[in-house]
Computed example of a mutant assay.
Amino acid sequence: MTSPHPETPSPTAILQRWQASGAIWRILSRTPDHVTIALYECTGGQEVDRLTSNDPALLRFVGDRFSSED
């Protein structure tokens, strides 16, 4: 049986897809167990959305970087 609600992609998948499309992300705030990331259009000009998560996989993916441009 198919679920009536599609699975929500992981925060890491969302960020990887964003980056793969050529768009830019930047860390707004970070603690050892939490991160808030701004998602910008490809030019880096306007913020489009934000991603806030404590997902360990996302924290590993961003590592010590401050943006997708690092």
Rank of each mutant, 00 (worst) to 15 (best):
E41Q: 12
Q19H: 02
F66G: 12
R50A: 12
P56N: 10
R26V: 10
L51Q: 05
R50H: 14
D55M: 05
D55P: 05
D33Y: 07
A38R: 09
V62M: 00
E69A: 14
L51D: 04
T36C: 11
S21T: 11
P4M: 00
N54I: 11
V62Q: 01
C42Y: 00
C42R: 07
Q19V: 00
P9K: 01
A57N: 09
S29I: 06
S10K: 06
I37K: 02
S68H: 02
V48I: 15
S53V: 03
S68F: 08
T8A: 13
R60K: 12
I24F: 08
L51H: 02
D49C: 08
Q46Y: 09
N54S: 15
P56Q: 09
S3H: 15
S10M: 09
P6I: 01
A20M: 08
G45L: 04
T43E: 14
I37T: 00
S10A: 15
A38M: 08
S68L: 02
G63S: 14
A38E: 12
Q46W: 05
N54L: 01
T31I: 03
A23V: 03
A13P: 04
W18E: 07
H34K: 09
R30F: 04
L39T: 05
S10R: 06
E69R: 14
Y40S: 07
D70L: 04
V35T: 02
G45T: 10
S29Y: 01
E7T: 06
